[in-house]
Each structure stands twice: as C-alpha cells, then as structure tokens.
Nucleic acid binder design. Structure first.
Length: 278
DNA sequence: CGCCCTGTTGGGGA
DNA sequence: ATCCCCAACAGGGC
C-alpha cells in the first residue's frame, strides 16, 4: 500500500506528462461496476488541469468542474504500459502524441473515479482528512489538539488519517519506533513533549522517504516501474524477531487496529502508570 | 496439491 | 467513539 511518500512519487512523475492533456475516454476494463470506479464516462472531453495529492489520494482537477480521484489501495499501479493482468481502468489521452494510461490493481482495494470538485461524500476519509504532514499547518500544537481527543491506541489513531494525512502501517511503525512510543499507548496519554517529538519524527521520516521515492515491499512501483529506495532503511516494519537497531532486544509482533505491528518492547514502553493517590 | 496465514487500505455496520 | 469484518488476490510455509 502506497502511503504518502509513494503516492507523492507517483504524483511527481505523472504531473509533467499528464498536465494539460485531454481525456478522450476513461473506461473500466476488468473491473466490476460499483463505487470504486464510478462516473468514469464524465471524464471524457475534459482537460487535466494538474496532478495534485491529498494524503494518499491523487486528485486531478478537470476542466469542466470535475475531479478524477485515484487511490492506489494496497496494490494499485499507474503505468503507461499495458499491464499483463488485473487491468481495471484505461484512460485514452489526447494530445500531439495520443497515448494511454493504465490503472492496474490486483486486489481491487484501490479506487479510480470521477466526482464533482470537492464532493467527497463517497470518500469519507478524504472528506475528513487531516493536515498535510509536509506543510506548515501541521504543527505540534495542531497535532496535540487532535491527539487529545482520542483514547484509541496511538498507532490506530494516526492511521485513521484524521490527525495527519498519509501515514499508513509502514510509516506508523517507523515513526513510533523513532519516537520511542508504544503503539498501543492511548493517544491522549502521550506527554506534550512526546507529541511534539512524534510530530517532528513524522515530518522528517516522510520527507526522507519522499526523497528516496518511497518504500517498495512487494507491489509498489514508480510510474517508470522502478522500486522505491526507502525499504532498506526501515527499522521496524516487517522485522519482528530481529534485533532492535538501538538496543538489540528482539522486535515484537502484535496486532493493533487489526494491523500487524512490530515494535521494540524495551525502547517503546507505555508511559509509567500513574501512581494511585493515597 | 491443499490449507492456513499474512498483507503498503478504507468503508460500513454493530 | 471504538471495534470488527469485509472486499479480492498472491505468495509463502507446512
């Protein structure tokens, strides 16, 4: 599942050759009807104004007031080459040299649909998306205000896309390891210092991962078909049983928010329980 | 070969 | 607000 750094990498590659192109036709291929591929016919005849992104969602504003929304899910890929299998959507592009854009998505967790600009009723996560982590609005105070509202495990809460946009399972594990926070710690029990530290860690982590063009575990590829370079720098994700890079304790695997989670049981302790008053 | 488990996500219902 | 299940498919272990 591409998270923010992977989606941003795709966005950057798409922007130069997609902006200002005309969509002649967008059609479903080997995909069922349904909300994941809705209203594709409306894209026909519209120019692509630009290629933007919010969290893990690619948003392509079109010339007649619609937006093409693309979410890669866990296995979605956008490619200029016709994929051998699991082709879900084909977009015919006009221009001096007409060409096609393909959306391949093995597991079909992704989406590729057209909405009226800003009408995200069918995409509740996008509608309620938190601040972009790489923009100035994502401050320690803003983050703290969000975290104080929830007793959910910090990892699950962050992955909900509300306190901050674009952090999924990989970067949540990594960020919490870096900030030495137990993934099950209730969000509202983190100290102010820890919240600020976590905010800084997320900004640094995602910024570095974008520079590395994302993390390829298995499915994710850039538009050019290349792998992201950040995988070799992961310290916790997918490394349960291996020694912690800081203290050499074996990383532990648990389930948080129905997602596999690895963390260091020594570095990432729950904050000490409040002592009972006499 | 079959069975079981796991997985880069998000939506919906209890 | 939180928890749980689910979509659909591939790959690995036994």
């Amino acid at each position: 599942m591409p998270e923010l750094p992977e989606v941003e990498t795709v966005r950057r590659e798409l922007a130069p050759w997609l902006s200002e192109r005309m969509i002649l036709r967008a059609r479903r291929a080997d995909a069922p009807d349904g909300p994941k591929y809705a209203a594709l016919e409306r894209a026909g005849g519209q120019r692509i104004e630009k290629v933007t992104r919010r969290g893990k969602f690619l948003i392509l504003p079109l010339s007649k007031g619609d937006e093409l929304i693309i979410h890669l899910g866990m296995t979605g890929r956008i490619t200029p080459e016709r994929p051998a299998s699991h082709l879900r959507v084909v977009v015919d592009l006009g221009g001096a040299a007409p060409r096609k854009l393909y959306f391949q998505d093995t597991r079909r967790f992704g989406r590729f649909l057209v909405v009226s600009a800003g009408d995200y009723r069918s995409l509740p996560t996008l509608a309620k998306l938190g601040p972009e982590p790489l923009e100035p609005a994502f401050t320690g105070e803003v983050f703290r205000t969000a975290l104080r509202k929830s007793r959910a495990p910090i990892k699950a809460f962050i992955m909900g896309q509300r306190p901050v946009a674009g952090v999924g399972n990989i970067y949540a594990d990594e960020a919490l390891w870096r900030a030495r926070i137990h993934p099950e710690c209730p969000a509202n029990r983190l100290s102010k210092a820890k919240v600020f530290e976590l905010r800084d860690v997320i900004v640094e982590l995602l910024g570095t991962a974008v520079e590395a063009r994302g993390t390829t575990i298995s499915d994710y590829r850039t538009v050019g078909g290349e792998q992201g370079g950040f995988a070799s720098r992961l310290q916790t994700y997918g490394r349960a049983g291996q020694p912690c890079a800081r203290c050499h304790t074996a990383l532990q695997r648990i389930i948080v928010g129905q997602r596999g989670t690895s963390f260091c049981p020594r570095c990432q302790r729950m904050s000490a329980p409040r002592r009972k008053p006499l």
